[in-house]
Amino acid sequence: MGQLGARAGLYDAATVRVNATGSISVMVGAHSHGQGHETAFPQVVAEMLGIDESMIDIVHGDTSKIPFGMGTYGSRSLAVCGSAMVRATEKIINKAKKIAGHLLEASDADIELKDGQFTVAGTDKSVAWGDVTLAAYVPHNYPLEDIEPGLEETAFYDPANFTYPSGAYACELELDPETGRVTIERFAAADDFGNVVNPMIVEGQVHGGLAQGIGQALLESCVYDENGQLLSASYMDYAMPRAEDVPFYQVDHSCATPCTHNPLGVKGCGEAGAIGSPPAVVNAVIDALHSGGYTQVDHIDMPVSPHRVWKAMQG
């Protein structure tokens, strides 16, 4: 994205460090601040290697431990950093196959990796993941001329394009015509995030975004007076959404058109809820007002507070 003026790159990086006994530390540039990377990222590596997630730990948030990273923002962690992790894991698999090929006395081109076992294609000759990783670090009988010891790989991944998730959101609300108060009754969000690694986490991301979007639409506002004094400068005046301001949400991500340009086929999901919900809410408010006969109201600026609704109804 340098051509657009970004002074920093928008790539990300990951190092997959396989230890002698087969456990793995994955150093990632993305840094979770609530997104659950420690759970979701190992799911990807575990899937690729056919080993259990409990053997894989994520290391993040420390420049002394991680090669480099651009961090977590813009719904990018899995699409960008996850892709770097996939690339690094692919390098691991390639090298591990070479080691396995050596141990099995077969060409690495014939080695298949499935469920944590390296097998010579078409035979029952196999060697376990742990035997290969041990050989990498305890290189007795090891072709040191062809293969370096150790099993650690780094990849930087710079996406060729953004990802383009999309969605359709609906809001049903009640508007009290006497006070102007709006109550969200139901909210439905159908999103296309491409492939999904951990559906539970993805749904949680949408929930949180929806509450922030509903907050923007109905509650939150930073107000300065004409002298530049910030009036809404504590939770006494800046209205944060609470549990009773929001309903249970219906969310769905079953319409999936996988992203074509990252290896996981994933699209960003972290911001979606906050993007689609404000217009859904405000459109519903205007719809409610029209259905109640207040057809003069074209628009109400956010936050659509009871006071603003009442004022709009006064004409």
Partner: peptide, 13 residues
């Protein structure tokens, strides 16, 4: 009249 600082931040009501 105008006020600033915490008076404005907390006392707008």
């Amino acid at each position: 009249a105008k006020v600033g600082g915490k008076l404005a931040q907390l006392g707008s009501r």
